[in-house]
Design a protein around this nucleic acid. Sequence first.
RNA 1: GGGGUCGUAGUUCAGCUGGUUAGAACGCCUGCCUGUCACGCAGGAGGUCGAGGGUUCGAGUCCCUUCGGCCCCGCCA
Length: 589
Amino acid sequence: MQFKRRTHTCGELRETNIGETVTLNGWVNTRRDLGGLIFIDIRDRYGITQIVFEPTFNAEAHRLAKELRNEYVISVEGIVRKRPADTDNAELPTGHIDIMANKLIILNEAKTPPFPIEDEIDTHEETRLKYRYLDLRRSKLQKNLLLRHKMYMLARKYFDANDFVEVETPVLMKSTPEGARDFLVPSRLHKGKFYALPQSPQQYKQLLMISGLDKYFQIVKCFRDEDLRADRQPEFTQIDVEMSFVNQEDVFETVEGLMRLMFKEIWNKELQLPLPRLSFDEAMEKYGSDKPDLRFNLEMVTLNNVFVNTNFKVFKDQIESNGIITGLLAPGCGEYTRNQLDVLTDFVKKLGAGGLIWMRVKEDGLDAPIAKFLSDEEKLNIISKLSAKTGDLIFILSGAKLKALNIMGALRLEMARRLELIKKDAQPQLLWVTDFPLFEWDDETKRYFAMHHPFTSPRIEDVQYMESEPGKVHARAYDLVLNGSEIAGGSIRIHSAELQAKMFKALGISDEEAESKFGFLMKAFQYGAPPHGGIAFGFDRMAMIFAGESSIRDVIAFPKTASAVSLMDDCPSEVSEAQLTELYIRVRK
RNA sequence: GGGGUCGUAGUUCAGCUGGUUAGAACGCCUGCCUGUCACGCAGGAGGUCGAGGGUUCGAGUCCCUUCGGCCCCGCCA
């Protein structure tokens, strides 16, 4: 098909172009057929320009324009003209001009799209995902992809300027049993053997440090075969970073520099450095989360001290069994009805709490179902500890420490929603959470797991407890948290064979097991491993927050549904018997 | 694996206690219309009520099973 190369994009023409003969190519955004006069808005990713078809100007073009429908692909040649007085459209950057068409070519017709190509649509996501290529025509999603592109460029420029080297690591790698479920890739050349897709290039980047690359980064796809969430996809992108001869402060400095750049270039905001830090313990006690949202206050308060000598059995038991009693003040909620309180009780019960204790703060004291079990002194202390005022509502949860704090953290977020504490224009809150526990107790298997990964270095001063009290050992691990989302996480790694052996021992991994699972890495460590550490950003999540979206899918071109399916191309799908045979695979029924 | 929620026209939804031919808006089609930009006016077409089964004289509506979207818990070193 013959058509002229465009002279301008659809967002480009201004009054300075008046009188020029131009050619635009694009999609029909809307048509307004007035009979004798036809207006067509032509759209490409740069913008929208109004075309006018007038029979006295060009009868042939006008005749053909009658056939135009939404989403037809067209090429238009015409003359840029100032719009007649009072017909300007201030909404459009191109709204002071229009194009008198003297030549129209229909490059392609289009079926009526299943949903309108415009920003504010309320079409179900299912339909949008099925026709993702149409969804991506909408300027909102295009804007998100452009923002994502800008973030790639900023990251690459930043790391390059700081002497980092981008190195590609394998996508087909060895399956490692720790961590998330691997996606497996069967080998045709090796019967019964499998590659795994990387959960992250963790081992490779450590090997690159041993190789002396010194400063490495990579924008890289990672894969985890776990259940999805609004902010989790089975394949996702990391900015992976590793550095040699560094401590935690060096990593922080590097990351903070990048974040300052992103804040400036994406949001035009000055980021105050250094970033605030919270220890894991502090974050859990105050906010009930290892990724606290600091855009609002509502701090939780640990009340164990108030109840050291209590007669209330529930609290007494918790204190004796090393549990926690945590309180949350809901300002001005003292008038919550029984029904509202039941809903909130139900909310925490669904998260695994035994129940929810509530107290209305009245002029003359606390009005609560458990009031009769508490001494006057305890009541006064609750009020003062939480700085409660008349008309407030107090929540108290007790239980095993991390579990109770987690549930209260969820309630904190729920109350913030109900009280609308997160304003739309709230300043973004970025912080470090540090000093994570090195180990995490797993009740099911009755053993400790590495909270981060088994190569994470303990704090030097805690090494002495690794055998006696593993639960007490803190890691040199850290997370970067933005508005209540973890956007990056990393650690200083173990680089000594001796300490690594201690770590495996604490994890209950035998020498043989360590050898078969991580032997290649252990071996490499014997050839002069420098002290090193790093971090990895959840790029999609970061893009989501910078774009102001609430789902990661809105910053990914072709995302999968919550059940890990691509509705557009219908994958995963079955494969032919021949393919399976070649891979020595039989599907179990 | 568990909890919540949704599924009716191309789209977004309404549809009461089970009862005549399942409605509205937008979109779509046809005609009219020379300054629209949410164009206007007139007319029209369009339905596997997610699927399967059951109860009933009768099911969009009640029951059971099942599929799918979204959110959350578990899971995500």
